[in-house]
Write a protein that binds this DNA or RNA. Sequence first.
DNA 1: CGTCACGTCACCAAAATAGGCGAGGAAGGC
DNA 2: GCCTTCCTCGCCTATTTTGGTGACGTGACG
Lengths: 219, 219
Amino acid sequence: MKPETLVKTWIVEDHDTFRRSLQRLCTPERGLAIAPAFANAETMLATLKAAPDSQKPDVLLLDVGLPGRGGLEIIADVHQHAPQCRIVILTVFEDEEKIGRAISAGASGYLLKTSRAETVVEAIHEAAQGGSPMSPSVAASVVKMLAKLTKPAAQPVSLSPREHDLLKLLVEGLTAKEIAERMQVSIHTTSTHTRNLFTKLNVHSRAAAVARALKDRLV
Amino acid sequence: MKPETLVKTWIVEDHDTFRRSLQRLCTPERGLAIAPAFANAETMLATLKAAPDSQKPDVLLLDVGLPGRGGLEIIADVHQHAPQCRIVILTVFEDEEKIGRAISAGASGYLLKTSRAETVVEAIHEAAQGGSPMSPSVAASVVKMLAKLTKPAAQPVSLSPREHDLLKLLVEGLTAKEIAERMQVSIHTTSTHTRNLFTKLNVHSRAAAVARALKDRLV
DNA sequence: CGTCACGTCACCAAAATAGGCGAGGAAGGC
DNA sequence: GCCTTCCTCGCCTATTTTGGTGACGTGACG
């Protein structure tokens, strides 16, 4: 894993002291190129847009300290102008809300500012190699979110094969007539299946059935 | 972070050599209690069921080498008999499918067998403290999955406040009448909103609107 | 002041759906 | 054999939904 070339890192951090500390971490001895550092995202973006590809960063350390509008929107812009750049969030917030939004926006890593200097350096290298460095508690949040998002039905329902087919087509938004065609049966049959399906799902409308199906991952 | 008590770790690993290697890692000098090790999940579960709470493990290192039925079902059983136990998967597989299913099942961590001994020990401690140790590439997969699951609408739609309200109620499976009550308006109004909503969402039925809303996370 | 988006309400008709009933055949378990 | 589940098809009606049109008041914006 010895770095053949220095990892180009950019830094966005509004606190002067902390920004300089980060900047001092980036030394050739640590396998990192001298890092441009910016006090706000706008100047960084302007520089990024003007930079030739060869000078664009491999990793961007991004502080998203400001609540509300703060840096998450920036991520999309960075991806647009430097698609290969891995973005590592560096912040004091560790609530699932913020973590989830950062990852949705395209962040690769998420470090807390309580991380040790050595950890940050490791994280930069890890990110540059395609990994996703995260502080332990952040990793736990991410795993928790993923588990929640993929958890199956609370009370599992056993649908017959045809009912399952029907449900999938319902979720596609087809009408009864279209479903009958797709399933190669009479519209009366789909009607029967639909009624049975409603009973099993404990709903009284197609819309509710679709909601149940998608929420409980029945499809 | 000094461990005041030794972390009780159990090991399930079918390869004799590797199992003994893991077992040798668990020493008081490393902050770990002498670890019971099992060649298969069944005997581990039997032992777990018979064990008093005070002897139940803090962390379970679980090999899920066998493809198909292998260990993921075990996770639920372990959670049932030792709710506080953190489960760390230890395997050679690193495809998103397996990782996702392990996490859905309730695993806290996921290590590749290529991990160094020192890393495994760190992971055990991290898991015991509520973290989620993962090999870098696994972390990247997890982040990628989470990003995919939470990515917003492909083509964002701008709904008016009332339309958004309506959509939320639709997703709850309410009928037009119920929605009218909830929104404190006439049923004719909900009808108008519904039509406009359909146009914006480019659908022609409530079911399709619900599908679009949930798939594109418009709610 | 005009315009536009929005929310509200209404009337209308064609179409779809929800839901109840019965009934035959095929497959599988006991 | 009997029973159950599932799939299939049909008939029925009340209700809902879809989609079109028009209309009024409000507030924001230029």
